[in-house]
Simulated scan of single mutants.
Amino acid sequence: MKTKRYVNDENFIAGMTMKDETELENNNMALHACENPENIIINRKKLATSLQCDLASFVCANQTHSANFHKVTLSDIGRGSEQLETAIQDTDALYTYEPNIVLCSFTADCVPIIFHNEKTGLIGVIHSGWGGTVKEITTKLFKHLKQVEQCDPKEFSVQIGAALSQEKFEVDEDVYLKFKDLGYADEFMYFNDKTNKYHIDNQLTVKKQLELTGIPVDQITIDRTCTYKDPNGFSYREDRQCGRHLSFIMRKS
C-alpha cells in the first residue's frame, strides 16, 4: 500500500495514502466515491494495520466544501469508518486532544492540511478545496483554536499534502474574483492569454492563511506533488470517477 508518511515519531503519526494499482480500486479510501464499499473497508483496514490500530479508531466526516469544523471526542470514535451514514455531517475539518484516534480527510485535487501541537497534543485535519479556501476554513479553525482552545499558533506544526498544482488548476473569472477578494492571494494567481483562464495555487494560498494566523513559516511544510500529473495521484479534474486519498493523523498514547 502506497502511503506518504509526513510525521512518524514517538508521539504522532501522519500521512497520506496514494493511488496504488496493486490494491483494490487503486487504493481508493472513500466510501462516497467507490465501486464497492467492501473494497474500501479492506483498504482502510490495511491502513489501520499499518498504523497499528483498528479501523474502529478512525473518525471521518461527510465533507461538503464548507467552513465547518468539529471537535472530536471519545463519543465520536468510529464515526464514518465503515458507513457513510455515521460520518460527522457537513464538516470539513476535525480536531481532537484524544490519543489513539485517527482523524481522516479525503481529497482528489483539494488541499489536505494535517497539523499537530507538540505541547498540548492537539491534532487535526482540514479539507480545503477552492471553496473551502475562499471561505477561509483554515483561518477560521485556527482562530477558534486560539480563542476557544487557548492554543498558541507558534506551537503548531503543519503539513500541506499533495494537491492539484497551479499549472493544472485553471478557473474562470468567477473563481478568480473570489480568491482576489481574499486580499492576499494575488501573488498566487496568473492569467493565461491563450486559454483565457486563470491559474491559482491553492496550496500557497492555504499556506498564506496559516502564516496570517501566526504559524511560523518554518513550521509549515508543503508536498508539491501534483495529484493530476503524478501517476500516484487521484485527480477529480482528470477523472470524475476517481478514488480519493486519505490524509490522516493520530497521537500515540
Rank of each mutant, 00 (worst) to 15 (best):
V217I: 15
M29K: 07
K168C: 10
Q83W: 02
K180Q: 13
D92N: 14
G124S: 04
Q241A: 09
L210Q: 05
M18K: 13
C242L: 03
H65Y: 13
K197A: 11
D152E: 14
N196W: 10
R251K: 15
M18R: 14
K154W: 07
C53F: 05
S50D: 11
E38Y: 08
D54H: 07
F179D: 00
A93V: 02
M1D: 10
N100M: 09
T22K: 15
E173W: 11
A87C: 09
A93E: 02
E238R: 15
M1F: 13
T3K: 15
D76L: 06
E187F: 09
K178P: 00
G78V: 01
D239E: 12
Y184S: 04
W130N: 04
H70D: 03
D76V: 00
G80V: 01
G121Y: 04
F69V: 00
A14K: 06
G243M: 04
C53K: 11
G233K: 01
E149F: 08
G132E: 00
A48C: 05
S105I: 03
Q147F: 07
K143C: 07
Q83H: 10
K154R: 14
I137F: 06
K194N: 13
P216S: 11
C226R: 04
A14N: 10
L74T: 09
P153L: 07
C226T: 03
G132P: 00
V102K: 06
T107Q: 14
D152F: 06
F115S: 02
Y6S: 12
N39W: 12
S165D: 02
T3M: 14
V72H: 02
C242G: 01
D223T: 04
D92S: 08
N202S: 14
M1A: 15
L103R: 03
N117L: 05
D181A: 13
L164V: 14
D90E: 12
T107D: 03
N202Y: 07
V175P: 01
W130M: 03
H65I: 07
E35K: 15
L24I: 12
